[in-house]
Amino acid sequence: MKRKILFFFATVLCLASFFMVLIYVPTEKDMGIVQRIFYYHVPLAWVAFLAFFVVFIGSVIYLAKRDTKWDNIASASAEIGLVFVSLMLITGSIWAKPAWNIWWTWEPRLTTSLVLWFIYVAYFIVRSYVAGAERKARFGAVVGIVGFLNVPLVFLSVTLWRTHHPPLTIFSGGLEPPMLATLMVCLVAFNFLYFYLLSERSMMKNDELTISLIKEKLARRNS
């Protein structure tokens, strides 16, 4: 029931975001139509950071309690976070080509974001190479906790170093009301989508674990 409600709101809000980004919002004067990428790029980044924060929390609780439910939440969130951070990097690069005339540059925000992507790719590499469910979860939790240290660095990179990347103008009143409304709708839509995907994936991971345990027991009984 909870998942159906999340899916319903995610679908309605994603459709609303479509309308607002493509039709409702006025075109920005300086950057033109390509600025509209921003309305999805920022929520993609926000959800990726949120997802990695959930990985961090899930990993800490797993190491404290050794309850596999928390490892399932953490690994499900890492998977979703990786999808969102990949899309954030791709959309940023597509925006950079007309705005900066380059697809990629090694400046602080872009570089720290790419490092973030590699950290969570490493999270899954570690999990796939380690044998045993308990060791897999334990090693993953360590990477999930240490990897999260890069998230504040990505967020603060625009203020800590000189960078080409535009600063965050949402809270400083740098956006016109229709632009802010569009961004908020996209942000809420992606949050609903994230929580829907998280509940689906963590439940599936719980089921996968239960099924593999039952299969093991059955195999032992049959042999």
Partner: peptide, 8 residues
């Protein structure tokens, strides 16, 4: 560019 980003 905008369309490409949306489609992706």
């Amino acid at each position: 560019y905008m369309l490409a980003a949306f489609i992706i």
